[in-house]
């Protein structure tokens, strides 16, 4: 828990994107449909706009803050509200002030330009209330509970993202994959997004995966999918803990990308009952100090199995086979 040496503003601070316009060089701004962003997911998706050569996107913003902030007896003065767009991968930080639009001081609006060349993948958009507190100017007295995501490449405004699936024959294609031509699938965790490569040279595999058959075929397919997912989650977890940035004092940092998400989702099962940061530190310690890393493997396996919903798939399969058996007997 945190404490501050000055009074903070209690109550909800919320941010909303109300419109998005794209700027293509030499042309006037083109408003996008509101479908390009989701106030439910709090995501702006700039990948499916149909404009390839856009240069910047103007986000119209609206923030709501508790009216206490600007009450005469609040103890704060020079209250301002700023929107901040950041992306760790590009060290980008854009700050714009919003303007109060209602007398109550609750609604603040403004706009922020997202320069495409300043961002790579996903930028975070947050809003802060800043004021002079106890004579000190520029104190952050409140921050929005939720951040928006500005996704440069997604077509759908969703927070969740999917790992990639590549369907290809392993005999061909990239060098590194060729030695694996005998296996049905392999997980590549090196790219911007982890990818499962499914080997079409493994006969019948893709038919089984994409088939619509029910009965035994359907049961086997669901079990196979669960097995593949178990493999994937195990691999991505190892990839994520194996490539942590470490602070000077040895504290491992959560990665910014999908690796961070994977760790956040799986660590509670790997190190139950621990705060995330502590769990990450412990896993990192065990991996690097060569003690306890082996002991951790069953827990990683457990977390991956759970994440892949393997127990559910397996019991469904077993029950399904029983039923088929009974039908055959009858």
């Amino acid at each position: 828990m945190k404490a501050y040496p000055y009074r903070r503003l209690a109550g909800p601070v919320s941010l909303r994107v109300t419109a998005v316009e794209l700027k293509v060089p030499g042309e006037s701004r083109e408003p996008l449909d509101t479908k390009a962003f989701s106030v439910v997911e709090q995501v702006v998706a700039l990948g499916g706009t149909g404009f390839d050569d856009w240069e910047s996107a103007r986000l119209k913003l609206s923030a709501t803050i508790p009216s206490k902030a600007t009450a005469p007896d609040s103890g704060w003065s020079d209250v301002s509200v700023v929107a901040v767009l950041t992306e760790k991968a590009t060290n980008a930080r854009t700050v714009v002030p919003l303007e109060s639009t209602t007398e109550s001081g609750r609604e603040w609006t403004g706009f922020l330009d997202v320069w495409r060349a300043d961002h790579r993948d996903r930028a975070s958009l947050s809003v802060h209330v800043v004021a002079r507190a106890d004579g000190v100017p520029g104190r952050v007295i409140a921050t929005a509970q939720n951040e928006w995501i500005v996704d440069l490449s997604a077509e759908a405004p969703r927070r969740q993202r999917e790992l990639d699936v590549v369907i290809a024959g392993f005999r061909e294609g990239p060098q590194w994959r060729r030695p694996f031509r005998e296996v049905p699938w392999i997980v590549d965790t090196s790219g911007d997004v982890a990818a499962v490569h499914v080997n079409t040279d493994f006969e019948g595999l893709t038919d089984l995966l994409s088939g619509s058959g029910s009965g035994v075929e359907g049961l086997v397919r669901d079990l196979l999918l669960a097995q593949m997912c178990t493999d994937v989650w195990t691999a991505v977890f190892h990839a994520a803990v194996g490539d942590l940035e470490v602070e000077e004092d040895g504290t491992p940092l959560f990665p910014h990308d999908w690796r961070g998400e994977v760790l956040r989702e799986m660590l509670p099962d790997v190190m139950p009952g621990r705060p995330l940061e502590e769990a990450l530190g412990e896993v990192h310690r065990r991996r690097t100090e060569a003690a306890g890393w082996i002991d951790l493997q069953p827990r990683i396996h457990f977390a991956a199995t759970r994440r892949a919903e393997m127990p559910k798939a397996l019991s469904t399969t077993i029950r399904g086979l029983d039923r088929l058996q009974q039908r055959a007997d009858a």
Partner: peptide
């Protein structure tokens, strides 16, 4: 606690 972006825009 301090927003440099506001005190030194």
């Amino acid at each position: 606690t301090l927003m440099y972006d506001v005190v030194a825009p």
